[in-house]
């Protein structure tokens, strides 16, 4: 598995700098949360890593090579993406939507390969979708649809999974379910880079945090290294108290 590294990545639209000199490293088997207030540049950073946006300066490398030198299909074999927008254009069956995740992997064959079928089965199993495999996505709840999209992303079987607010608008039970799936993926070696708005969840379920404010990475490291009331105030401008209890972080905000 290749390593993704960003060196002094900046992205600008007109006069506004959405990302300023961001440097970072993503390693296998970890869950990294991108946290910060609205407009901090989290989604922009994610899209730069995915190659959707081209940095105006700086470089993002995969295996030491600029990601923009990879063609779309090769890049798709390294990274899968879970967009903020989970709506689907047509009400296809669950199993067919999940199978779309094999697009780049099986692009040269008319049917799924054995490895592809196994990746699909694994994704369906992991996201507990086998009992609704033949249902139309039009009949699913928000939580079920989120699981379908997650399964579609992991069906690609890529070493990197980049998710933009995967927990948004999900209830606590479904948030927990998705985080559990993400942890299983990390244990299988996938690096999960996740944009998170839910700070208490991010600090308790992530291996590392990347703190962003106004397009700048203000801190990067493990939860224990970077989580302080001062940092929370610096990034979110909110007073907070942190209590550690048996390895679980209890955050309260004033």
């Amino acid at each position: 598995m290749g390593k993704i590294q960003g060196q002094s990545v900046s992205y600008r639209v007109g006069n506004s700098k959405l990302l300023k000199n961001a440097s970072f490293t993503l390693n296998e088997g970890e869950i990294v949360s991108l946290i910060g207030p609205n407009g901090a540049g989290k989604s922009t950073l994610l899209k730069c890593i995915l190659g959707i946006l081209k940095p105006t300066s700086g470089i993002i490398t995969l295996n030491g090579k600029d990601i923009h030198t990879f063609n779309r299909t090769s890049l798709a074999r390294y990274m899968s993406y879970l967009s903020q927008d989970k709506k689907l254009a047509w009400p296809g069956k669950v199993k067919n939507i999940v199978a779309l995740g094999r697009f780049s992997a099986d692009i040269d064959s008319t049917k799924h390969t054995l490895a592809g079928q196994s990746a699909l089965d694994n994704a369906m199993e992991l996201c507990q979708l086998n009992n609704i495999a033949n249902r139309s996505v039009a009949s699913l709840s928000g939580g079920e649809l989120a699981r379908v999209q997650f399964a579609r992303a992991i069906a690609s079987n890529t070493p990197y999974l980049l998710a933009d607010e995967p927990l948004a608008s999900l209830d606590l039970k479904h948030q927990k379910k998705l985080l559990k799936i993400m942890r299983t993926c990390a244990q299988q070696g996938t690096c999960n880079l996740v944009v998170m708005h839910e700070l208490p969840l991010a600090v308790n379920f992530s291996d590392r945090l990347i703190w962003l404010k106004k397009g700048e990475i203000v801190a990067e490291g493990t939860v224990e290294e970077t989580l302080t009331p001062e940092r929370i105030f610096e990034v979110f401008e909110v007073q907070s108290q942190i209590n550690w209890n048996n390895g679980f972080c209890d955050l309260s905000f004033n």
Partner: peptide, 20 residues
């Protein structure tokens, strides 16, 4: 045809799945 199918997910996601 395959490209049209994968566009079900939206252009952005289809692009990240390798669709030119």
């Amino acid at each position: 045809q395959k490209g049209i199918s994968v566009l079900t997910l939206g252009e952005e996601t289809a692009g990240t799945l390798g669709l030119n």
